[in-house]
Simulated assay, not measured.
Amino acid sequence: MTVVAYALAVVLNLFIVYIGVGFLRRPYRAAAGYGVPATQDRAYLEIKGIRDATFGVAGLAVLFFAGAHAGAWFMLAVTLAPLGDTVIVLRHGGTKAVAFGIHFATAVVMLVSAGLLFAV
């Protein structure tokens, strides 16, 4: 179970780094994938990119330097981000499929990851 717990946490953190870099490289395309297309305010899209990349790098650092339990608390805390993203997509005209199929599902997987890390 230890390998699964660490592997899932690492994959989630690397994936959010990937999402963050996507928002920095192609912010409008990434915004469409997020569920709320944007036509302006590139700075805010880049802020999201930095936020996501930072969460991923911080999560990896916590996991590797502070251990599984600290990583679990980190994953639990940052689950607020995809839960908030779910609400944002719904409030701004995005589809329920994207809100729940991407953002809410991500929050659920993050909670599973936190649970596995707590069990290590």
Rank of each mutant, 00 (worst) to 15 (best):
R51P: 09
V109H: 00
T54Q: 08
A72L: 03
L63V: 06
A68P: 09
K96I: 09
G59D: 07
A77Y: 02
T86C: 13
T79W: 02
L76G: 11
A107E: 03
G101L: 01
V112G: 04
G94Q: 07
T106M: 10
A68G: 07
P82T: 08
G84F: 13
G94F: 08
V78S: 01
V108I: 14
V109M: 09
V57P: 06
A107W: 05
T79C: 13
A81K: 01
L80S: 10
A66T: 09
G84Q: 08
G67N: 09
P82H: 07
L83V: 15
E46N: 15
D85H: 10
G49L: 10
V98T: 15
T106R: 00
L45P: 14
L111K: 00
L111A: 12
A97G: 05
F104Y: 10
I102S: 12
I50D: 05
V112Q: 04
V112A: 12
F100Y: 15
W73I: 01
H103L: 08
D85F: 12
T79A: 13
E46P: 03
F65L: 15
I88K: 05
A58H: 04
D85Q: 12
A114N: 04
V57N: 05
G49N: 11
K48P: 03
M110T: 01
I88N: 14
G94E: 06
V112M: 06
H103K: 07
I50P: 06
V62R: 02
L83Y: 08
A66S: 12
S113M: 07
V89M: 08
F65A: 14
G56T: 03
L83E: 11
V108G: 05
G67F: 02
V78K: 02
A72F: 02
T54D: 09
A68H: 09
R91K: 14
F74C: 04
T54A: 15
D85M: 12
G49W: 12
L45W: 14
G56N: 04
A99C: 10
F64G: 10
L63G: 06
F65K: 06
H69Y: 10
A66Q: 13
A81I: 03
V109A: 12
I47K: 08
L63K: 06
L45G: 15
L45Q: 15
L45E: 14
F64W: 12
S113K: 04
A105F: 13
E46V: 13
A53Y: 09
K48F: 11
V89C: 04
W73N: 02
D52L: 10
W73D: 01
L60N: 03
A58L: 15
G71L: 01
R91A: 15
V109E: 00
V57D: 06
A77T: 01
W73T: 01
A114W: 04
I47T: 14
L80F: 13
G93N: 02
G84V: 13
A97P: 02
M75V: 00
V108W: 05
D52M: 07
M110Y: 00
S113L: 06
G71S: 08
S113W: 07
G49F: 11
G49T: 11
G84D: 07
L90R: 15
T54P: 09
W73S: 01
A53N: 09
V112Y: 03
A107T: 04
I47H: 13
V87E: 09
A107D: 04
V87Q: 12
L111P: 01
L63Y: 07
P82R: 08
A114H: 04
L83P: 10
A77I: 08
G71K: 02
F65G: 05
I102Q: 13
G67E: 05
G49A: 11
T86K: 06
F100G: 08
